[in-house]
């Protein structure tokens, strides 16, 4: 089942008035339950493509269809709604809310969905237990290691059962052992919960585990 489709995507940035082409005529289709890695050297347009697929940015040209719906014509609030209900994000720098504990960070997106306090707690604790991070529940980000923070970020990304999780260089700040554990976890979520994962990475560990690899070079798909 096709979940994401990009048609003739072009993204041009203005750098001090000079147009810089970040993506050039990208065509891509991602199906439900895929585990996709977008790889390529720095500046190849990986993060730009991920941001466009994640409804965080709009293309200069082209269309993106999410579950058959064109999201390039949506306004800010509609895109927020899509991100809240359908997408999960994992960032390179974890980006947990520093004043919230691990469990509160996980609960936050459920709160935005209007889920009751009790249900939020139960769901967050169950997921933390499943991911083996229950003991971190009451710790704040500055009391956790990078690997622990990224696990909490994974929990935050999947807690609302999104259709797609987008992970931008999720292992870049982790040592290889911790990165391996994190990838195990995401693979497990992919196979058990059928969550679609799209990574951008140039980490060999991530690329080696890709079930589908898309290589970007100078803003074009190279494979």
């Amino acid at each position: 089942m096709e979940i994401l489709k990009a048609e003739r995507l072009v993204k041009i940035y203005q750098d001090n008035g000079v147009p810089v082409s970040a993506l050039n005529n990208i065509n891509l289709t991602v199906s439900k339950g895929e585990y996709v890695v977008i790889a390529g050297p720095s500046g190849s347009g990986k993060t730009t493509l991920l941001n466009l697929l994640g409804a965080l940015d709009k293309p200069t040209e082209g269309r993106i269809y999410f579950e058959g719906e064109d999201i390039t014509t949506k306004d800010k609030n509609e895109l927020s709604k899509i991100r809240l209900h359908k997408l999960g994000f994992i960032f390179q720098a974890y980006n947990l809310i520093p004043v919230l504990t691990a469990i509160e960070n996980i609960e936050f997106s459920m709160m935005l969905l209007g889920i009751s306090d009790k249900e939020r707690k139960e769901k967050a604790l169950a997921l933390m237990d499943e991911l083996g991070i229950k003991e971190l529940a009451n710790k704040r980000p500055n009391e956790m290691s990078g690997g622990q923070q990224q696990r909490v970020a994974v929990a935050r990304a999947i807690v609302n059962n999104p259709s797609v999780v987008l992970a931008d260089e999720p292992t870049a700040n982790l040592d290889s052992v911790t990165a391996g554990h994190l990838l195990d976890l995401m693979e497990q979520m992919n196979s058990e919960k059928n969550i679609t994962f799209i990574f951008s990475s140039h980490d060999k560990n991530v690329i080696d585990r890709a079930k589908r690899l898309i290589i970007l070079k100078d803003g074009r798909i190279d494979n």
């Binding site: 994640g54 927020s80 991100r83 994000f89 960032f91 997106s109």
Partner: peptide, 14 residues
């Protein structure tokens, strides 16, 4: 600013 970006990314409305 960065944190607001994260909040927006996870679906927080304006």
């Amino acid at each position: 600013i960065r944190e607001f970006g994260v909040l927006m990314a996870i679906g927080m409305r304006n």
